[in-house]
Design a protein around this nucleic acid. Structure first.
Lengths: 346, 346
DNA sequence: CATGGATGCTCAACCGATGGTGCATGATTG
DNA sequence: CAATCATGCACCATCGGTTGAGCATCCATG
């Protein structure tokens, strides 16, 4: 094989990628013509179809790949849309990431997602990096300190949109956590009445006391109790964070009554609960409901229903804001979907 | 507020980001000095600490953010490492994405992940895009056509590493699907013998017949039957794809014997099975095991165990290859971890 | 006081693509 | 046959950093 078969002789790691100058040389044309042909502006620039054809062919068999670094440097828009997200590995955030990518592509944007492990330092770091790549817009999902990120973006003139958690000074799209939690609490109470003829105040487990979503859900939880004429004792609300281990430990630390109902705040907390269930017998009369959805969560026999956040609707709203920046900093609440499970299963 | 408070007066979307030239102007220094100071090479370039300090301070309060597009264009390395992955929204791929990001950052690389929905066209598209961003290396996870991607990368002189599925012509890191499936099959058979005193040939459900992993797992499934002196009837192997709906439909299409054991090939198939279980009664004597792990899968009462792929070990090997490109195209198999669940639960 | 070496900084050529401007040619018109 | 216009292309500045090379200045040395 001679050196000339360009795209074929691989293996050489020192070979630099083909540029428009290489192609210009081969075609006996100028780099600007090559550029025009390859980015589709050749008609406007009055390049002949003959030359356009020749250049396209050469680019093809040289395996040309545009250098977006260079292209974007020159252009005014990067078409990069960034997202920072706490985790990938649960269904809620997994679904957000996946839908976000799909919708971004559908809008002709290049999505870059970074996962920040709920660590404030990583969030800032990730935001900086996305800004350095000149992202046009940043979607800030479930951030611990969205305002800090918002300031960073504002300083660079980049728009930021909050998802999942609200923040001052930027548009936010969140679930209607209050209504979702209230409805779920009602459901658990109703099922307990139906199955056990009793309606004790429920326990609330998981999340962080200062987290907006947890607060809203707790508010809904309380509202449902209030409307049922129930008072929730202090010890019934247990918020030690989102990690599964923390929930597992918390469960070991309390004594549930013989007839108990549990409001589980997130599938991660549910995972902890489920670990606890392996080694401890649940109370004889036991029901639970979970805020957030997981396909397998439905198969816990005591689970009466799950609240599913409407990821599609949330992202649709986010992209509305991307397309048409809103006035001010609206807070949009998207209704959740309550999925009750069939009764009488355990 | 006067116009001079640079980083503070936000809101103006037409404002261009601050460049090293702006800073040079303010500092009364040259752009090259600013560049040297801001990228840490100033000592080597014999810039005085005094000037370095002044420049740093100015950069700080101008809210300077380097334009990586420009920086990377000039440098030889992009430090971008790309990954294409079929989905985010199951625990296996979610864990891969999350670990990958963490490890990439630990190696000083910028991870960019793209999710391809198992669509060959999207895979190629995504690979092209990552190459256009001049990624230094591409991790190809669970691709439907890894060789095509490999050719694309080779043509650009970019290294590609296969993860989860092997491919010719590039290093591959995959699970030891054969051993994992064999061990899981043994476990299911043993539990059925223990619980029901019977050991019928199991059913295998989920996956695609031409998928490498499915083939290997089927081989392990068969090997375990063979060593137990069992023959697997033709109708027992049902491979109609990975989607949950397909598994659900497939389950409705077969009649399980009264004493049945199921090898479920992936948690996605398990999700389908679980949907089927809602509306249909399982056979009176029923056990299952699942290849792939999910925290909630453990709570299906008939589930005797799950095979967990060792994502940490797989990615560690991948990054070994990233750091030190191997000779040739080795295929590394990483052992899976079988997690048996406590017996006597249903 | 010439010589040599450090010190502190600037100049200018890149990296690869883009697009405004302008120069030849050939075709068309008065 | 000159004037006008369309056609087909090339030239070159530019985007924002990076970096080899080089120019002053200052201090120490013989």
């Amino acid at each position: 094989m001679t050196r000339k078969d360009s795209a074929q002789d691989d293996l050489d790691p020192t070979r630099r990628p083909v540029t428009i100058y290489d192609i210009a040389q081969i075609a006996g044309a100028s780099a600007s013509s090559v550029s025009a042909v390859l980015n589709g502006t050749w008609k406007k620039r009055r390049i002949s179809a003959r030359l356009a054809d020749r250049i396209s062919r050469i680019a093809e068999d040289q395996g040309y790949s545009i250098n977006l670094q260079a292209s974007l440097l020159r252009r005014d828009r990067s078409r990069i849309i960034g997202m920072i997200i706490p985790k990938y590995d649960n269904r809620y955030f997994g679904a957000i990431a996946e839908r976000f990518e799909g919708m971004a592509r559908a809008h002709g944007l290049f999505p870059v997602i970074t996962c920040t492990q709920r660590e404030p330092a990583l969030e800032i770091e990730a935001a900086r990096e996305l800004l350095a790549y000149r992202a046009e817009c940043l979607i800030v999902t479930g951030a611990t300190d969205p305002e800090r990120v918002a300031r960073l973006c504002a300083a660079s003139g980049v728009r930021a949109i909050n998802l999942d958690l609200p923040g001052r000074g930027m548009p936010s799209v969140v679930s209607d956590n209050f209504a979702g939690a209230r409805d779920l609490t009602r459901l658990i109470l109703a099922r307990m009445a139906q199955d056990f003829g009793a309606r004790p105040a429920l326990h609330f487990i998981g999340g962080r006391a200062h987290d907006h979503n947890t607060r809203e859900r707790l508010r809904g939880f309380m509202a449902a109790h209030a409307e049922a004429g129930l008072t929730v004792p202090d010890g019934h609300v247990i918020m030690r964070g989102y990690a599964a281990e923390k929930t597992e430990a918390a469960m070991s630390g309390i004594r549930l009554p013989d007839c108990a109902g549990l409001f589980v705040n997130s599938t991660i907390a549910l995972e902890g609960l489920v670990r606890w269930l392996v080694s401890h017998r649940p109370p004889p009369q036991f029901r639970l409901g979970c805020f957030d959805w997981d396909p397998f969560g439905a198969f816990l026999p005591q689970n009466v229903g799950m609240v599913r956040q409407d990821v599609g609707a949330m992202l649709a709203k986010v992209f509305d804001f991307v397309e048409a920046p809103p006035q001010g900093s609206p807070l949009v609440q998207i209704p959740c979907v309550l999925e009750p499970f069939p009764a009488a299963r355990g």
